[in-house]
Design a protein around this nucleic acid. Structure first.
Lengths: 149, 149
DNA sequence: ATAAATAACTTGCACGATGCAAGTAAGATT
DNA sequence: AATCTTACTTGCATCGTGCAAGTTATTTAT
């Protein structure tokens, strides 16, 4: 650790190009397997994904367990520590949405998802919305669950 | 840009080891010059700082102007786009404070600063506190102003 | 039962970001 | 005029990331 500052603490753990994107896929889009996490808009390499998943597990942000039906598969889920990243991710969405350069969820963004995000972003007191998000993920669901294609 | 997702948008701009730490120093600690930004707990290299400041300016998060009194110096300040990072930084502080591994601001953390941070972190509705932070920075001040050593 | 497909990786190599140490040029101080 | 301060740059080593290809275990298809 470079310092005792809590901003630095978070940046040292989360400050890379993939950690928060992977957590987004697990908690917002309900991706549960290596294959599902590979198949993303951003296009991650197989070695990078494997390394990042191992790292996120080390950091206690996700946990994995073998799929009981298919022995080739592993299933990833967010831990409570990972679920607590939701406020950071929501504030990042709010920042991106507020400033130019963002095209509103892109081709995969369904109207319902966009409304959900816009509500989360435009509400001044985000606490109740974020608690609902967390509760959904804690119960094994994911945030865009009701709007999945 | 790797995708249209607003999470990815923020991660591509902010997802490195220094951008948010530098924004913290400017907005929370009131550091205004290259020399002041060099002198940090984390210890940044001179070339990295120069490159990051140029990058943050390109991204519209900070602006610089020459010091009228000392022609060697430049003074850095956060733009409105940079000020809008405060909610993200506050949520990162909240996340770090909630989970183990963080030692509460370290040796430089004065009691007043720690109280300020704890209040920001423990309040469910962070909106009013964050608005006060933003207003202070907009007026040319910084968040720990009243508690500076 | 055998062959093909799928899932989750690993390996090798290139490139860009980061980190350290030393040097430089303009302006301020003595 | 000499020294100090400020804001850099340069050269080099290392680490994180990215691409392409290969590997192993398991499942599905024939």
């Amino acid at each position: 650790m470079r310092s005792d500052c809590p901003v630095n603490f978070a940046v040292e753990i989360l400050g890379d190009k993939w950690s928060l994107v992977i957590m987004r896929d697990i908690m917002f889009w309900g991706k549960r397997t290596y294959g599902a996490l590979l198949d993303r808009d951003e296009g991650i390499s197989t070695n990078i994904l494997a390394a990042r998943l191992e790292y996120l597990e080390e950091q206690g942000l996700i946990r994995r367990k073998p799929d009981p039906k298919d022995k080739r598969k592993e299933r990833f889920a967010a831990t409570e520590r990972g679920i607590d990243l939701i406020p950071i991710i929501v504030e990042m969405v709010a920042w991106s949405a507020k400033h130019e350069g963002w095209h509103a969820l892109g081709p995969k963004g369904l109207p319902g998802q966009m409304r959900l995000i816009r509500r989360a972003v435009n509400t001044k007191n985000k606490f109740p919305t974020i608690e609902k998000f967390k509760e959904k993920v804690r119960k094994g669901g994911f945030i865009f669950e009701d709007f999945a294609p």
